[in-house]
Design a binder for these strands. Structure first.
Lengths: 369, 369
DNA sequence: AATGGAGGTCGAATCGATTCGAGCCGGTGT
DNA sequence: ACACCGGCTCGAATCGATTCGACCTCCATT
């Protein structure tokens, strides 16, 4: 490559030739090594600190790197070599603008991100766009966490399994053999229903979250229930049925206050003697909507209508203190993160099911006389 | 999987040895190629569809892949070869749980994600944890978008520059020579101030967003203003000053209704003849808090106090229609996405500055007599 | 003085796929 | 019949870093 005789005493001349510079001119570790007069292996060791390198050599390498304006080892090459990208995929149920309107999801992701940052990993958002295909199906992820998604996106799961990518799900049907992090949805819901029963309510209705990925909206029918695929909704429904076996209601379809408001308006616009005296909303956001609807109809909460939620989040703009179930959203995220870390370390994590706590508020009371 | 002898005439024996299977047993493209009796290059061509491959050969390769349960080309290897990871980093100002409470940020990210999904890229969340270091500094990203972050995280920028990673910022000081996507913060703010002035207001106060990354809270002083680093806040302040040169106020520190409420309580708890008759909140969320505070103090909006916001988002739980400035949050995201795509294609995008529109609501009126 | 050992450095293989140019084969134009 | 051409396949280099074992040097021990 060079026709100069090598003058190598201690250092070969670093400018002996254009060693391994990228087309765009950026240096590589080889360039740096050449300039420092050491082998690429040594340069690598000096950079990563993984091997025994004399202080002298290390200084030389770092100096060369600085002179060449070297930005550090290429993450792409590192990833290939190590077989790890340092990226965890978070499969979310819808596009960002929709998914992130749910505080529970956000808190869960927050906990997850926090936990995996311990191993220096980052979170890649993978919205499930509903067409059976996840937007980023061939992304370089070390593991995937299904947060608020059902594992029924079979195509996706199959790909992950074939690629041998570890998987953890937050809330979901564990039939798929996936490690699951969940809370006691049924028990929590039962507590709320029992609370209403203890107060004396008999005409109680449910405002339900989505039952399927199609986000159907409409009356809660046996047919729809039997076709339900969203475990969370089904479990919470079951908890209510434990107390009120024949409870009916309306499917709001998603956890947003406007959906709750619309559902409640339908439930409340009936003759007063058929009107429910209490509404079990399956999320706090829905409950906020229900309360808004009640106020619009001139009903006082809790005098005319009792309302309970689920989640225990702080709802912006809702002054009331909601009677609800507090679930540890963030802890679910951290637990999922721990599970991922475990799996990446080759161990087998166990499913975690968190307890929930009843959180009394001022939105429930005895039924109107 | 099958012990049947290969019936292939023209092909070499595929089971001649354990060709290139990973330690964990997963097959590689080489394994598949061997099994199909073709060379790795041909197998690659068959998979990607980039070269001329006979239907016959392609079918053989796909069949072999299926038999071996091959999950497709390893993204890590592809990334290295192509020099692209298909991942765009989104630098957000704080941890997820905090950042994502801001609807404007969410909408922007939504637009961004949407736009880059066109080139099959995904979004990696990189929270700026404030310690000068971004959590994922050596992540395999093809480009980085600073969304709601100031480019003053110099250490981070330096790293990106050295790595030759394209960068786009959404709202920010363009001194850094970074492509910037922004809206007319100053003009919008001026419109709002002028609106109040036209209504006859003289005692007007500001509830400001954060001025620095430390999220200082407290009275708006000249000293603090001159040390401000958050361009958005400074620009909106300047717009107000264009109309009310000596306007003062309170720094809420962040865009959340509770921060707005706290700030407003301070501003309103003064003798009635000193009390502002109008408050310019620098975001809709802050405005919602201001309204809540006013109601707590028994002040009617807009009869006793006019309130304006900024952003034009739908605030959950706020029944009122806020007088505000509508900014195209989502479009900012898509514009940033387009800029990223441009840069990755080797072209040079230009800065985009969106116009804003005045959106009258029912929270402003003439000052009390 | 010879042997053992420790500290440092280097070569070469490897991670898994892509891609360019070369080569092979059968068919067509003159 | 000869040369050429187009379609298909293959070999080998490449992307950039990491890592294991070999090797070399110098010092200390017996």
């Amino acid at each position: 490559m060079t026709r100069q005789p090598e003058a190598s005493g201690a250092t070969g001349r670093g400018d002996a030739g254009v060693d391994a510079a990228r087309p765009d001119g950026r240096p590589t570790l080889a360039t740096v090594a050449a300039r420092a007069g050491v082998s690429p292996s040594t340069a690598s060791l000096a950079f990563s600190g993984h091997g025994p390198v004399s202080d002298d050599t290390k200084a030389k390498v770092l100096a060369a790197a600085r002179e060449l304006d070297y930005g550090g080892p290429d993450p792409l090459a590192q990833s290939l070599r190590r077989g790890r990208s340092g990226i965890i995929g978070a499969l979310i149920p819808a596009r960002i603008g929709v998914s992130f309107r749910d505080p529970v999801l956000i808190q869960t992701l927050d906990g997850l991100a926090e936990e995996i940052s311990a191993i220096g990993a980052g979170l890649l958002l993978m919205p499930d766009l509903g067409d059976g295909e996840v937007s980023v199906t061939s992304a370089p992820v070390d593991a995937v966490v299904l947060v608020g998604c059902n594992a029924d996106a079979l195509g996706t799961l199959e790909v992950l399994r074939r690629r041998n990518i570890p998987m953890v799900q937050i809330e979901g049907d564990d039939s798929a053999g996936v490690v699951t992090i969940s809370v006691d949805n049924r028990g929590g819901s039962r507590l709320l229903a029992q609370h209403l029963k203890d107060l004396g309510h008999e005409r109680v209705a449910i405002v339900a979250l989505g039952l399927d990925r199609g986000r159907t909206v409409g009356p809660l029918t046996a047919e729809r229930e039997s076709a339900a695929t969203v475990t969370t909704t089904v479990e919470r429904l079951a908890g209510a049925r434990d107390v009120y076996p024949h409870i009916g209601g309306w499917i709001a379809g998603s956890s947003r206050s406007d959906a709750g408001r619309a559902a409640a308006l339908t439930l409340l616009d009936v003759p007063p003697n058929e009107r429910p005296t209490a509404i079990l909303a399956q999320s706090d956001l829905l409950a906020a909507g229900v309360i808004a609807a009640a106020e619009e109809r001139g009903l006082r909460v809790p005098e005319d209508l009792s309302v309970v939620g689920f989640d225990g989040i702080r709802v912006d703009g809702l002054e009331r203190s909601l009677t609800t179930i507090r679930q540890p959203s963030q802890e679910k995220g951290t637990a999922a993160g721990r599970a991922v870390v475990e799996m990446l370390a080759g161990r087998t994590p166990v499913a975690v099911a968190f307890d929930v706590t009843f959180q009394p508020g001022d939105t429930t009371g005895p039924p109107p006389a």
